[in-house]
Computed example of a mutant assay.
Amino acid sequence: MKLVFLLLSFLIGRVSLVGESLKPADALAPEYRLNGPSFGEVLGTAKEHLLQSVVGLFRNEKLIAHGVVVHPQGLLLSKASSSVGAGMIQSSQGQTFPIRIRKRDEIKDLALWQITSSPPLWRAVTWKGEHNQTQSGSWVISASPSLEELKFGVVSATSRPIGREGGVMGVLLEESNSSDLGIEVVEVLPQAAGDRAGLRVMDRILRMDGRPVKTVEYINRMLQNKDPGDLVTLLVNRKDKEILLRVTLGHRAVAFDLFNRNLLMSGPVSKRKDNFPLIIQQDLPLQKEIMGGGLFDIHGHCLGINIARVDRVTNYTLPTKVILPTLNMWLKDWP
Rank of each mutant, 00 (worst) to 15 (best):
M1P: 02
L3I: 14
V4I: 15
F5H: 10
L7R: 04
S9D: 11
S9V: 13
S16Q: 13
L22N: 05
K23A: 15
P24F: 12
A25M: 12
Y32H: 08
L34V: 15
G36Y: 03
F39W: 08
V42G: 01
L43S: 02
G44W: 07
E48S: 12
L50R: 02
V54F: 01
V55H: 01
V55P: 04
R59T: 12
N60Q: 15
V68G: 03
H71W: 02
L75F: 15
L75M: 13
S78G: 06
S83Q: 06
I89S: 07
S91A: 12
S91M: 08
G94A: 11
G94L: 06
Q95I: 09
Q95F: 11
R100P: 04
R102N: 05
D105N: 14
I107P: 00
A111S: 13
L112H: 04
W113Q: 03
I115Y: 01
I115E: 02
T116D: 08
S118N: 11
P120C: 08
L121F: 13
A124C: 07
V125N: 02
T126F: 08
T126H: 12
E130N: 05
E130V: 11
N132F: 15
T134V: 15
G137E: 05
W139S: 06
V140G: 02
V140K: 01
S144K: 05
P145L: 13
E148Q: 10
E148M: 09
G153N: 04
V154E: 00
V154L: 11
V155E: 00
S159N: 11
E165A: 14
E165G: 14
G167A: 07
G170T: 04
L173K: 04
E174W: 07
N177K: 10
S178I: 12
D180R: 11
E184H: 10
V185R: 04
E187F: 13
P190Q: 12
A192F: 00
A192P: 02
A193M: 06
A193N: 03
G194E: 04
R196A: 11
R196F: 05
L199R: 00
M202T: 12
D203L: 05
I205P: 03
I205A: 03
I205G: 01
D209G: 14
D209Y: 07
D209L: 12
D209F: 10
G210K: 06
G210I: 08
P212W: 09
V216S: 10
Y218I: 09
Y218N: 06
I219Y: 04
N225C: 09
K226V: 07
K226H: 07
L231Y: 04
R246Q: 13
G250L: 04
A253R: 06
N260D: 11
N262Q: 14
L264F: 07
S266V: 08
G267F: 06
S270N: 03
S270P: 00
D274R: 03
N275D: 09
I279R: 01
I279V: 15
I280V: 14
L284G: 04
L286G: 05
Q287T: 14
K288A: 14
M291Y: 01
G292T: 03
G293W: 03
L295N: 01
L303Y: 02
I305G: 04
I305N: 00
N306R: 00
N306E: 02
A308M: 06
D311L: 09
D311E: 08
N315Q: 13
K321E: 11
L324W: 05
L324P: 00
K332L: 10
D333R: 13
W334A: 13
